[in-house]
Write a protein that binds this DNA or RNA. Structure first.
Length: 430
RNA sequence: GGCCCUAUCGUCUAACGGUUAGGACGGAGCCUUCUCAAGGCUUAAAUCCGGGUUCGAUUCCCGGUAGGGUCACCA
């Protein structure tokens, strides 16, 4: 039997990392078994479902590269839901119930399921047998009206119609499972395998939720997190391949994924770790890819090696470009006092700068930082590194903190370096 | 509160009865070093508690405790 899994979000808000972790597992499991991954937008709550949320969900899924083999809205199955609702009513396993509206404007009739009671036991792939006494559920509501099925009913019908073999969802659904199984039995459907995933918690150790400040997943995309990094990080929340690997591509994840290695205990979403995983994937990009995928200005290309060392997100890369690495793109305005930070005697500092200037002049075009270093270090060692290198670096950058002078010369090139050193010499002579 | 689920360093986790309880992120220290990064090395840090079972428990069982989830005409 081929595997069919599904991700069934409701478009009533922006989804957070915990929701997408579920999608990741469902996707990986299906693909590992060469099966099908279905995305079903559960929009039976007409009041709260919004197109913008649906768009956001689909956008996030495509960003993460979790393409659906089949995708549809639950509301598109309305006819089928009505048909089966009528069937249950005619068979007497469901009935129209007169209600006393609890709130003004509330409904006077709903459709309830005739609960047979007893204990429902199901085998959870992750947790083993779970038994729940179903008596206290009473005759629960399965539809507001024939055309408005409620979650439990629609889920059961759609999963069965689509041939879903494995229901992979958060453990907050464990207590919903028995009543869904009851409906399945009444409808004559078979029960799929259930895998209830441990929840992803926020730093407050409670279920990630928008109300408590959990970010929409797309916010991570917006600050320049790479989708392969997010996928990698999410996959490792509650699962691991069983070896020492920490960084895995989508293909590697598909090949290794297994429900049997999924944890039972919940995990906390840690942005610090996510950033470090992201940095790993940023560093794997070629310099050209880095600029393109980070949506950086093309001029930033020459700074990419430095950005790979310093930035954990593309947003950080942009900040760096505007602050610490700004000297690569703008002529610095050095201050005399800072030039003399390590060697207070202006005459000596001027001598060092002039000599450095000469040495730089001997460099070949496009000298690497290593070549620059090889040329300058003997002199610096002879005269004192701080006395030579500090004014040089400061003259080139105009910044107390910057990349080292060799790298600066290499990136800036000979003529720009020359100009900057000369202007620092002018300042010293004032 | 009822019901359900869970429990290894701060965090993510390895171990599927026998290990000096391993790795990663983060932290600390050292090295490198003109500054800032990066890099290298080192280091601190965990089996929730109590009973069993066993020659031997992180591991199996029971009981506590703690945390989480869920108790809708939302999904």
């Amino acid at each position: 039997m081929s595997v069919v899994t599904r991700f069934a979000p409701s478009p009533t808000g922006f989804l957070h990392a915990g929701n997408y972790r579920t999608a990741v597992f469902a996707y990986l499991y299906a693909k590992h078994h060469g099966g099908e991954f279905i995305v079903r937008i559960e929009d039976t709550d007409r009041e709260r479902s919004k197109p913008e949320y649906e768009h956001n969900i689909l956008e996030a899924l495509s960003w993460l590269e979790l393409p659906a083999d089949k995708q549809f809205r639950q509301s598109e199955q309305a006819g089928r839901h009505r048909e089966l609702l009528e069937k249950l009513i005619s068979e007497g396993t469901a009935y129209v119930s007169k209600e006393a509206p609890k709130e003004p404007g509330g409904r006077e009739e709903v459709i309830r399921f005739k609960n047979p009671g007893g204990v429902v036991t199901f085998a959870d792939v992750i947790r083993g047998n779970i038994s729940i006494d179903v008596d206290e559920l009473h005759d629960f509501v399965i539809a507001r009206s024939l055309d408005e099925p409620v979650f439990h009913f629609a889920v059961v019908v759609d999963d069965a119609d689509e041939g879903v073999t494995h229901v992979i969802r958060g453990e907050d659904h464990i207590s919903n499972t028995p009543r869904q199984i009851l409906i399945q039995r009444a409808l004559g459907f078979s029960t799929p395998a259930y895998a209830h995933l441990p929840l992803i918690l926020g730093t407050d150790r409670t279920k990630l939720s928008k109300r408590r400040g959990a970010k929409a997943l797309t916010e991570y995309r917006d600050v320049g997190v790479l989708p392969e990094a997010m996928l990698n990080y999410l996959a490792f929340l509650g699962w691991n391949p069983g070896d020492e690997r920490e960084y895995m591509s989508k293909e590697e994840l598909i090949a290794a994924f297994d429900l049997a290695r999924v944890h039972k205990g919940s995990a906390i979403f840690d942005e610090v770790k996510l950033r470090s995983v992201n940095q790993h994937w940023m560093r794997k990009l070629s310099d050209q890819e880095f600029v393109a995928r980070g949506d950086l200005d093309p001029s930033a290309l020459l700074a990419v090696p430095l950005l790979k060392e310093r930035a954990q997100t593309f947003e950080e890369a942009r900040e760096l470009l505007a602050t610490e690495l700004r000297c690569l793109f703008e002529t610095p305005v050095p201050e005399k006092e800072s030039l003399l930070r390590k060697e207070p005697e202006a005459g000596k500092t001027a001598t060092h700068l002039t000599h450095s200037l000469d040495l730089i002049g001997l460099l070949p075009d496009h000298a690497s930082p290593e070549e620059v270093k090889a040329r300058l270090m003997p002199y610096a060692d002879q005269e004192g590194r701080a006395a030579v290198l500090w004014p040089l670096r400061y003259a080139l950058s105009g910044q107390e903190r910057s990349p080292d002078p060799f790298t600066l010369v290499s990136i800036l090139g000979e003529s720009e370096s020359n100009a900057r050193i000369r202007s620092a010499l002018d300042i010293l002579n004032r």
